[in-house]
């Protein structure tokens, strides 16, 4: 009975550590703004298709003569339509899911690779560590955007359509890890020398215990921060790829809409609204990342 009471007490303490982070986060107005923006984008991604009157990449106006409609005139097309007949409002709502998918999934891949390589190269001294560092550095100096464009063109053309987005996710994920690896490597190196790690070694703890029980949890907060920022970067890169015409033309993304709009620059609403969405989502994730960084590492403020 007493044991369970103490266990409960422990649970409460851990919760209160989260509460401390939340309190620090809450005080930061920019961070809250970021959270609201991200929440908005996530909401759109989850429920967007309920509110969208038309299916993605469909041309409801093509035969009704309501193409190239400016926004706020016809309330069945509140944000206007493209000359091809695409409804901007529906398209924006349905793109949210794809954009968020690219941002999150690519980040997940990058974090998995980056964390693994970073921790391994930081923790193992000697040849293997140096080799992993070398690989990271090579990846860091590659002209990533050019390579991404090249690969996405080849792969999107080669692989059957409809998988375009997944291919972009893979490419972004595979090219996005070196920054994460660099940071986790630095953190691992610092932690490896930290006295509490030495103290654990002196207790006779195994390597895997030191790695998973002590180093990993302490690396987590910088990784969370950089992952959040990476989501923003990935959304932006995806937009760039699609805007440049290297994306999958059959998948709705905000970048794809920019690409549409580029052909009809005098119909400003085609590019303006997806542009705003790109700004909102990247700004949101960036503010969120900064806020998390301050809330998780109060040392910066002291």
């Amino acid at each position: 009975m007493e044991t369970s009471n103490k266990k409960l007490a422990k649970k409460r303490r851990s919760a209160s550590q989260l509460a401390v982070v939340w309190r620090r986060f809450r005080r930061n107005k920019a961070a809250i703004a970021g959270l609201v923006l991200v929440g908005f984008v996530v909401f759109m991604a989850v429920f967007g298709s309920f509110f969208a009157p038309f299916p993605p990449r469909s041309f409801p106006c093509l035969y009704k003569g309501c193409t190239s409609l400016p926004p706020f005139q016809d309330w069945s097309h509140p944000l206007g339509t493209e000359p091809s007949g695409i409804d901007v409002y529906s398209e924006i709502l349905q793109s949210a899911r794809n954009d968020l998918y690219v941002g999150l999934a690519a980040t997940l891949i990058s974090v998995a690779i980056g964390l693994g390589i970073g921790v391994a190269s930081g923790y193992s001294s000697g040849v293997s560590g140096a080799l992993l560092l070398g690989i990271t550095q090579v990846f860091l100096v590659l002209p990533v955007l050019v390579l991404i464009l090249l690969f996405s063109r080849i792969l999107v053309l080669l692989v059957a359509q409809g998988f375009g987005l997944t291919i972009i996710v893979l490419i972004l994920g595979i090219f996005g890890w070196p920054g994460i690896a660099y940071i986790t490597r630095g953190e691992t190196l610092r932690l490896k020398e930290a006295e509490f790690i030495q103290a654990t070694k002196a207790l006779g703890a195994s390597k895997s215990r030191i790695l998973f029980r002590h180093i990993m949890p302490n690396i987590l907060s910088p990784v969370i921060v950089i992952a959040t920022l990476t989501v923003a970067a990935n959304i932006l890169t995806e937009a760039a790829i699609s805007f440049l015409g290297f994306g999958d033309p059959n998948t709705s993304t905000w970048g794809q809409m920019l690409n549409d709009g580029f052909s009809w620059l005098n119909y400003w609403w085609i590019s303006f609204f997806p542009g705003i969405m790109i700004v909102f989502s990247t700004l949101g994730f960036n503010l969120l990342g900064d806020g998390l960084s301050e809330a998780l590492n109060p040392r910066l403020k002291e």
Binding site: K10, R13, S14, A194, E195, F196, Q198, A199, T200, A202, L203, G204, H214, P217, N218
Partner: peptide, 21 residues
Amino acid sequence: LRRSMQMIFQNPYGSLDPRMT
């Protein structure tokens, strides 16, 4: 051996894992 020989460190701020109770 590991149990019998222990160490106490100089810096009380660095020698405890900040994420453990």
